[in-house]
Design a protein around this nucleic acid. Structure first.
Length: 201
DNA sequence: TAAAAGATCGACT
DNA sequence: GTCGATCTTTTAA
């Protein structure tokens, strides 16, 4: 049978990212509908982990498309990416935020004290709500423990908005962040404390 | 409500 | 030894 997943993730990251909005990431009993993503190109993108060559951590980005690239941020947070565009070089789409649509009880146990809309509002939160670990790095999203599924009701492109990426120190001005306009689960834009900009000491 | 700083572990130079 | 595609907590207005 044909792989709808393969079609979904074919193309450069900037093209694939908005298409992932509305798709569902599933791990065990927990399923999250994506509402916010960011595109990361490999070459020529100072914001990408793949910029500057292959390293031990970003090896998954250089592998085949349709796999899960997990990394640890600030020692506490697990961030999840989907590798895309193998033939276009190392690229990935960062899963920034989403809405928990299944297994909400499980997700809430992992994040005590959070309201429903905060369960997966942010990359680190999303990773924790799904129960992801560094061990999930390299998982095949078609057959692995973590799956990426197409949404039954794809999000209308009319409500997709684009803007600058969040929290990067370099190349933060590129409008490669995509989110659904009408979703409360989208995280607010915050500039990196030490981002390169016009004002520099 | 908004802004600032702390936390904390693996990877990179 | 330094840095980080972040989140939480604290302090101030």
């Amino acid at each position: 049978m044909t792989e709808p997943l393969a079609e979904l993730i074919s193309g450069p990251p900037v093209d694939v990212a908005p298409r992932l909005l509305g798709a569902v990431v599933r791990h065990g009993a927990v399923a999250v509908r994506l509402t916010e993503v960011e595109a990361y190109a490999g070459a020529g993108d100072p914001g990408s982990h793949a910029f500057g060559g292959r390293t031990r951590r970003n090896g998954t980005m250089f592998g085949p498309a349709g796999h899960l690239y997990c990394y640890l941020s600030h020692g506490i947070h697990i961030c999840a990416n989907v590798t895309v565009g193998e033939e276009f070089g190392p690229g990935a789409v960062l899963l920034r935020a989403g809405e928990v649509i299944e297994g909400r009880d499980v997700a809430r146990e992992r994040r005590p004290g959070s309201s429903d809309r905060d369960l997966a509002r942010g990359p680190g939160r999303l990773g924790r709500a799904l129960g992801l670990t560094l061990g999930h790095d390299g998982t095949d999203l078609a057959v692995g423990a973590v799956r990426l599924e197409l949404s039954d009701a794809p999000a209308p492109l009319a409500v997709v908005r684009a803007g600058p990426r969040t929290g990067l120190r370099r190349a933060s001005e590129r409008p490669w962040r995509f989110w659904l306009d009408d979703e409360p689960t989208v995280s607010p834009y915050r500039r990196h404390p030490r981002a390169e900009g016009p004002e520099s000491p």
